[in-house]
């Protein structure tokens, strides 16, 4: 039973195309992610990694193809529109896709607690009291309970990013998307955020992670995907892609990354 659930794709992209004006950014992306799987996305700047996550998070409308999450078609190009789940179902699923950004994006006029409780209260109709209990639990998990009543500006980058993760988790997401969440952090703050992500992965969260933290990819990812010019060119186990990548592009890109890491 459990085996079955693991094999069935939980997030599924088929032939996804996305363009910005004349620029075709995603050129037919196919990707299946099983429940509980952690997939790390790597690739050069401009290869379309953020765009891919934004499409899954329904922040961008795609031009062709379909995006399915937990059995509901949530995104589709005009040609595949008939496959779309009804609007209410789509909105439900959308609220169950959590996303964390490079620039934290906490709401600066709200306290940490309010940042976390707003969506559960407004979108799910959870009572203020219950939302607060849940928020405090989540803050415990990310080690920031004592910051509940602070405003974001008083927090370090690493702390803000952990609050952002807690805020996403408060919606009880089925999938978590992470877009270079440690890239804007001072090096000494990266560890505390990665630790929270690691813990999430261990608890069985389905995760799509864009990152240049190769140690995280090696140790936590089930699969590493290499994107180039809007398509997936390599999709393998971390052990394989790091030792024996099947494409020259991936090999070249990884060499640069590893060299950079060795210098650090």
């Amino acid at each position: 039973m459990k085996e079955d659930a693991r094999k069935k794709p939980f997030v599924s992209l088929r032939g996804v195309h996305k363009r910005f004006g004349d620029l075709l950014v995603l050129r037919g992306v196919d990707l299946q992610v099983a429940q509980g799987e952690v997939v790390v996305l790597i690739g050069r700047s401009g290869s379309g990694k953020s765009t891919l996550l934004n499409c899954v998070a329904l922040l961008e409308q795609i031009e062709a193809g379909t995006i399915e999450v937990d059995g509901a078609v949530v995104g589709a190009g005009p040609a595949d529109e008939t496959a779309l789940a009804p609007k209410t179902r789509r909105r439900e699923v959308a609220a169950e896709i959590g996303m964390v950004f490079q620039s934290f994006n906490l709401f600066p006029h709200l306290t940490v607690l309010q940042n976390i409780t707003l969506a559960p209260r407004r979108v799910r109709g959870v009572s203020s009291r219950n939302a607060e209990i849940l928020a405090l639990e989540l803050l415990d998990r990310v080690g920031l309970r004592e910051k509940a009543n602070e405003y974001p500006v008083k927090l370090s980058g690493g702390q803000q990013q952990r609050v952002a993760i807690a805020r996403a988790l408060a919606m009880n997401p089925k999938v978590m998307l992470f877009d270079e969440v440690t890239s804007a952090l001072d090096p000494e703050l990266v560890g505390e955020v990665l630790k929270v992500m690691r813990q999430l992965a261990e608890e069985g969260m389905t995760m799509l992670v864009v990152t240049h933290e190769m140690r995280f990819a090696r140790e936590v990812a089930d699969r590493v995907i290499f994107m180039d010019q809007g398509v997936i060119v390599e999709d393998s186990a971390p052990s394989r892609i790091f030792t024996n990548p099947s494409t020259d592009e991936a090999a070249r890109f990884l060499r640069v990354l590893m060299d950079a890491e060795a210098v650090e």
């Binding site: 922040l59 959308a94 996303m99 950004f101 709401f107 006029h109 707003l118 407004r122 805020r167 996403a168």
Partner: peptide, 28 residues
């Protein structure tokens, strides 16, 4: 724009997004 995205990704409706996130910040 990132404030809009953060609100949208949490599933807030357009009205709630403006009411709780965008307008209070704009007012200041």
């Amino acid at each position: 724009k990132t404030q809009h995205r953060a609100a949208e990704v949490l599933g807030l409706s357009v009205i709630d997004k403006y009411r709780f996130i965008i307008l209070p910040q704009t007012l200041r």
